[in-house]
């Protein structure tokens, strides 16, 4: 499974640099990094600094030509458009990849901090 996320031109991928932090963007960034640790290949392209893939990916290019930049973000799963105009929800990520994201987070963050002297 290869996921490709085509972002609109933005300063950074979480929106911390934007006019406000979009919790959605941060959540997406977190989900993506979690998916990667589970062996899913996720590629992210920002129109602002990597425009080439937008032109070289026919599905994305066609959407842009038809609907303009508002169509972004666009997500492809194994080359097929699965989402446009918005970021996928956690459930959508789970459905496409078969990886449970919620559990993954909890199991990771419930570690106990033991200090050895």
């Amino acid at each position: 499974m290869v996921l490709q996320v085509f972002d609109p031109a933005m300063c950074c991928e979480t929106g911390v640099c934007g006019p406000e932090v979009d919790p959605e963007l941060a959540r997406v960034a977190g989900d993506i990094s979690a998916l990667k640790t589970k062996g899913i290949t996720v590629e992210r392209f920002n129109l602002g600094n990597a425009p080439a893939p937008f032109v070289e990916t026919p599905a994305v290019k066609a959407l842009l030509d038809a609907k303009g930049a508002d169509v972004l973000p666009v997500v492809l799963a194994d080359g097929k458009v699965v989402k446009e105009g918005a970021y996928p929800s956690q459930e959508e990520f789970e459905a496409w990849t078969g990886i449970k994201l919620k559990q993954l987070d909890e199991s990771q963050s419930k570690g106990v901090d033991i200090k050895i002297r």
């Binding site: 950074c12 991928e13 979480t14 911390v16 640099c17 941060a26 959540r27 960034a29 977190g30 989900d31 990094s33 979690a34 640790t37 993954l104 987070d105 909890e106 990771q108 963050s109």
Partner: peptide, 12 residues
Amino acid sequence: LGEEGIAYMKEE
């Protein structure tokens, strides 16, 4: 966010 997500946010 998980631990990783938080680390990511911190860098951002």
